Amino acid sequence: MPGFAWEAAAAGSGFGSVAGLGVGLGLRPGLALGLDAGFEVRLDFGSAAPALFGRARELDLLERAAETAWRCGRLVPALISGDAGAGKTALAEVLAYRLGACGWTPAWGRSPEHEGASAGRPWSRVVAALTAVGVPEPAAVGGIEGSATTRFGAHRAAAAYVTGAAGRGPLLLVFDDLHRAGEETLALLTALVAEAVAGPVLLVGTYRASEVTPELTGLLAEFARADPTRVYAGALSEEATAELVRNTLMRDEDVEATAVRVIHRRSAGNPFFARELARLYESEGSAALAAVPTGARDVIRHRVARLPESARTVLRRAAVLGRDIDLDVLISALDDEELVLDA
């Protein structure tokens, strides 16, 4: 899992107990109660908690879902959506940090961006993370990439494996970037929710709201039956953007108000773009805020390069029209309504 080493024990944390540690971190009280004294807190306090700004409400909703999973002893699904760069992964990381402090075991599976990776990679990474903390490996009953019959058996086995692992203590399973997930991973998640896994499990999936595939649409429909907790990572407020800028620049004092307003306006409250603009401001001053930061430019080029040529043609013309685009004007400029609507 990115950014974490789950090795320290609660006794060395300075809070004296798992419950005390959770309360000390400001976690919801229900999550810090009822845990057996034998639970190990696999949290490395040598590294600081991931920084998160303007997401208190979203984090509270996810912690409420975890509390429900703990108190009811069942799997509870949760979905984190938002635009690229909105901080979906960061939100899940902070959740993992805080739940880990209360004895939860996090396991992380990310859908790879590059083609050619195994379709079952996210699940294999989750299993590897659980195995690393002492959960026995699941019995080999076939992969999630085989025939329908094989997949059915594999899904039942996966549900039984998660139930067994949750019997050792509460689990946080994060499946990151579901907009890139293959059919096999999405079918597995559907099965885990449908199989009614016993034991405290919070199953979190993150995805880009603007890149929902037909396959992911099917998963979201199946998840809807289980009444998942839904969290949308929207634009940051100007106040939260100011906090992010100060953190990025490692400053205790306030950053120039005019610069913060420009960064918030140009980034539209997107944490990734705001962070890149803050670094540009730090290195080149306020005048440079009219430019596109190098990091943001690289990401945009990468994403645009993956689009079909027809979509790139529409984007190039739309860029000339400015920030707010009138669809009729764009269609008139390209003289091709179907091309614009398809893009």
Score class of each variant (00 low, 15 high):
193 V>C: 06
194 A>Y: 02
194 A>I: 00
195 E>D: 09
195 E>S: 09
196 A>D: 14
196 A>R: 15
197 V>T: 09
197 V>P: 05
197 V>S: 02
198 A>R: 14
198 A>I: 10
199 G>V: 04
199 G>K: 04
200 P>G: 05
201 V>Q: 10
201 V>C: 07
201 V>T: 01
202 L>W: 04
203 L>W: 12
203 L>E: 01
203 L>C: 01
203 L>T: 03
204 V>K: 07
204 V>I: 02
204 V>T: 05
204 V>D: 05
205 G>V: 06
205 G>S: 01
205 G>C: 06
206 T>I: 03
206 T>F: 03
208 R>P: 00
208 R>V: 02
209 A>H: 09
210 S>G: 12
210 S>T: 12
211 E>V: 01
211 E>Y: 00
211 E>H: 11
212 V>M: 07
213 T>G: 05
213 T>M: 00
214 P>F: 11
214 P>E: 06
216 L>A: 08
216 L>Y: 08
217 T>S: 14
217 T>G: 15
217 T>N: 11
218 G>W: 08
218 G>C: 09
218 G>R: 14
219 L>T: 00
219 L>Y: 11
220 L>Y: 07
220 L>C: 06
220 L>R: 15
220 L>Q: 09
221 A>L: 13
221 A>N: 01
221 A>S: 08
221 A>P: 00
222 E>I: 05
222 E>C: 10
222 E>D: 13
223 F>R: 08
223 F>Y: 11
224 A>D: 15
224 A>N: 07
224 A>S: 15
224 A>M: 04
225 R>D: 13
225 R>P: 02
225 R>N: 09
226 A>I: 08
226 A>E: 09
227 D>I: 03
227 D>P: 00
227 D>T: 14
228 P>S: 03
228 P>H: 13
229 T>D: 08
229 T>K: 10
229 T>H: 11
231 V>F: 07
231 V>L: 11
232 Y>H: 15
233 A>L: 09
234 G>D: 15
234 G>W: 06
234 G>A: 08
234 G>Q: 08
234 G>P: 10
235 A>R: 11
235 A>L: 02
236 L>H: 06
236 L>Y: 05
237 S>R: 10
238 E>V: 14
239 E>F: 06
239 E>W: 13
239 E>M: 10
240 A>C: 03
241 T>A: 12
241 T>R: 12
241 T>L: 13
241 T>C: 14
242 A>H: 12
242 A>P: 03
243 E>G: 12
243 E>D: 14
244 L>Y: 12
244 L>E: 02
244 L>I: 02
245 V>T: 06
245 V>F: 10
246 R>F: 01
246 R>C: 08
247 N>D: 15
247 N>S: 15
248 T>M: 02
248 T>I: 07
248 T>L: 02
249 L>W: 03
249 L>F: 01
250 M>N: 13
250 M>H: 13
250 M>G: 04
250 M>A: 14
251 R>Q: 11
251 R>L: 14
253 E>S: 09
253 E>K: 07
253 E>M: 05
254 D>F: 03
254 D>Y: 00
255 V>F: 00
255 V>P: 01
256 E>M: 00
256 E>W: 12
257 A>R: 12
257 A>C: 02
257 A>T: 11
257 A>K: 02
257 A>Y: 00
